[in-house]
Design a protein around this nucleic acid. Sequence first.
DNA 1: TTCCTAATTTATAATGATTCTAAAGTAGAG
DNA 2: CTCTACTTTAGAATCATTATAAATTAGGAA
Lengths: 138, 138
Amino acid sequence: MSNNTIFIEKLRSSGLRPTRQRIEICKLLFDRKDTFHFTINDLNNSLTRITNEKISLATIYNTIHAFKEKGYLKEISINSNKTYFDTNISNHHHFFDEDNKELIDLNDKDVGKVKIKKILPGKKIKSVEILVKVANNN
Amino acid sequence: MSNNTIFIEKLRSSGLRPTRQRIEICKLLFDRKDTFHFTINDLNNSLTRITNEKISLATIYNTIHAFKEKGYLKEISINSNKTYFDTNISNHHHFFDEDNKELIDLNDKDVGKVKIKKILPGKKIKSVEILVKVANNN
DNA sequence: TTCCTAATTTATAATGATTCTAAAGTAGAG
DNA sequence: CTCTACTTTAGAATCATTATAAATTAGGAA
Ligand SMILES: [Mn+2]
Ligand SMILES: [Mn+2]
Ligand SMILES: [Zn+2]
Ligand SMILES: [Zn+2]
């Protein structure tokens, strides 16, 4: 209950009305100790499992896009038919486990400092992402 | 003509029959000085422009997948609804220009050596890709 | 509280890249 | 030349995502 107040405030302060659906999604995404990675499908499944009243898939897409827009989520660059999102919005990199299609965080200490020495005139760097693809040995 | 011989040999030696379609695609992809990046749609457009007899879209997909399988092409990890391919199969990284949705090579000298210090037991690193997203200043 | 309006949700259709299917065509060994 | 496995092909199917447009709701004003 009182926990929701934080999310309601967060939503309000972003110009987003605190609807039942958005609060439900906030709780699922942000009311936990550790950050995590998910696809829309993952999220939909979790929501179905956890909440009683159904949230439309369109609303899930809308909400996630709004949250990404506001900077509460990051979209991870990966070659997949599905889009991956991250509740860890800090600058960091990833392993992608090709066996179970899972992202795993690589924090800055796990990666030597990356220095981009080439510049493109008139262009500004928006992000630098490292993706390390891994798979089972054999 | 005699140029095709190289591609015919290349295809044969990979266990791929040198069909008219595959040779046409080889010429378009590999008969040039510089490597480049493309999507299936780009390739289809180029083929339509250059060749007289039409190549089915299904064949283009089949061929590109076969070429990737044989290691003649790389697929670039990028978050897009389209898949990007690269005729530069060496280890290198990319800028992605979000304004015109274009990939630009970053060779090893342009990027300080990347060292991954974390290991995942039982997992083998398949690739390390850096994607630097850029966009117009203003 | 009640009204009003814009924001939001929702079911459903549309989109578009990619993959599948199964029939027709072809390469090339013998 | 014949035969068969490989290849091409048109078209259908798939599936994540986006668009649509009608119903619902949040929240400020009266
Ligand atoms: Mn992709
Ligand atoms: Mn993607
Ligand atoms: Zn992450
Ligand atoms: Zn490249």
